[in-house]
């Protein structure tokens, strides 16, 4: 229920005064349940902000991985929007063209895919993300899991080979021989990648995860605009840094240093753009901390001790499952209630 009320707070003001008048004519009194506050944030506005924040890394991904990446992005967004429209049509729901959330789901999904992924797979993932990830739960505001990550998880289980086939970016360093991701190199070959390429982004990886600095740019924009809760990325990345640091201090030859952990793989993208998804993250401040720390612990466990090189997706999905529970146990005391009640 918390998610719902949060979304309602964010509902846009009625824009068309004529429609308002018509409604008022039919019903003399407009009865609405609480909350009555109108917020300056609307879903559309926030979503436009998120798309803007994702643009740098998206453009960079297209530049280094080529036209196929652009095609994937367009197909992903188109399929997501189309799936939502079709579902609304079939289920007889009133539908708006789109509030932008499907665009973001499609974009985020493709940004987490390898650049050589087949188009048919992009379509499948997008349909799964919107249909199984969002619409089946009742649409925006009711979904338990982040739709983009759910679609990606489905693809990961369906095409394990294609999901781990990497290609080299267009301007890779000369000594790079395969397109394997830094985390993959670490897990399977024990090769450490230096930090500079991780920040700049001329490494193998998914379309949108390679350049840490561009993602950081977009992420900070989101935080400054207050479109995302700063507590989640801070606690998530912070936990990864601290835990990674502890293991690095124990044995630096076996475990990578914590800076590597922070910049490698999809952590930046996941922490700023996926873990902060308003619908699937806790509504309370305390809950956000718990959410971020939990995701960090799961991520480090998978990266260092699991069978997979990367675990951002599973760590966020795992914590998504706990959000209703976290919300329930971190409810602030109602104003005016006695301490021990």
């Amino acid at each position: 229920m918390e998610e719902k009320s949060k979304i309602e707070t964010a509902k846009p003001k009625k824009k068309d005064p004529r429609a308002m008048l018509q409604k008022l004519n039919r019903k003399p009194f407009l009865l609405k349940s609480s909350p009555h506050l109108q917020s300056e944030y609307s879903i559309e506005k926030i979503m436009r902000g998120v798309i803007l924040a994702l643009l740098p890394t998206t453009i960079f991904g297209v530049i280094i991985f080529g036209w196929h990446a652009l095609f994937m992005i367009l197909v992903g967004i188109f399929t997501c929007v189309l799936t939502e429209l079709l579902f609304n049509l079939i289920s007889g729901k009133k539908f708006k063209l789109t509030d932008g959330t499907s665009v973001i789901t499609g974009l985020l999904l493709v940004l987490t895919l390898p650049p050589s992924f087949p188009i048919s797979g992009v379509i499948l993932g997008s349909v799964v993300a919107i249909f199984l990830g969002k619409m089946i739960f009742g649409g925006l505001g009711y979904n338990v899991f982040n739709p983009a990550l759910l679609g990606r998880a489905f693809l990961q289980a369906s095409y394990p080979v294609k999901m781990t086939t990497w290609i080299l970016p267009n301007y890779a360093e000369a000594d790079a021989i395969t397109g394997a991701t830094p985390l993959g190199l670490l897990k399977f070959e024990n090769i450490f990648t230096s930090i500079k390429p991780l920040i700049l982004g001329n490494i193998g990886g998914t379309i949108g995860e390679t350049s840490a600095i561009l993602i950081l740019l977009g992420g900070i924009f989101l935080l400054v605009k207050k479109y995302a809760d700063w507590r989640i990325p801070l606690s998530y990345i912070g936990t990864v840094f601290i835990l990674g640091g502890i293991f690095w201090l124990i044995d630096p030859t076996q475990y990578p240093n914590p800076i590597f952990h922070v910049f490698a793989g999809g952590l930046m993208l996941g922490a700023f753009f996926m873990a902060t998804d308003m619908v699937t993250s806790p509504v309370t401040n305390k809950g956000s901390w718990i959410f971020g720390i939990g995701a960090g612990i799961v991520l480090i466990t998978i990266r260092l001790f699991g069978g997979l090189p990367e675990g951002v997706m599973y760590s966020i999905l795992f914590m998504n499952g706990f959000v209703p529970l976290i919300n329930r146990y971190t409810q602030p005391k109602t104003f005016g209630r006695l301490k021990n009640e």
Partner: peptide, 23 residues
């Protein structure tokens, strides 16, 4: 050229397909 979705013959596919069928 159809790439089979391996997930469907794994346990999650069973839950997904059965859930959708019941729905």
């Amino acid at each position: 050229s159809f790439h089979p979705w391996a997930v469907m013959i794994l346990p999650p596919g069973a839950f997904l397909a059965l859930g959708l069928m019941i729905g």
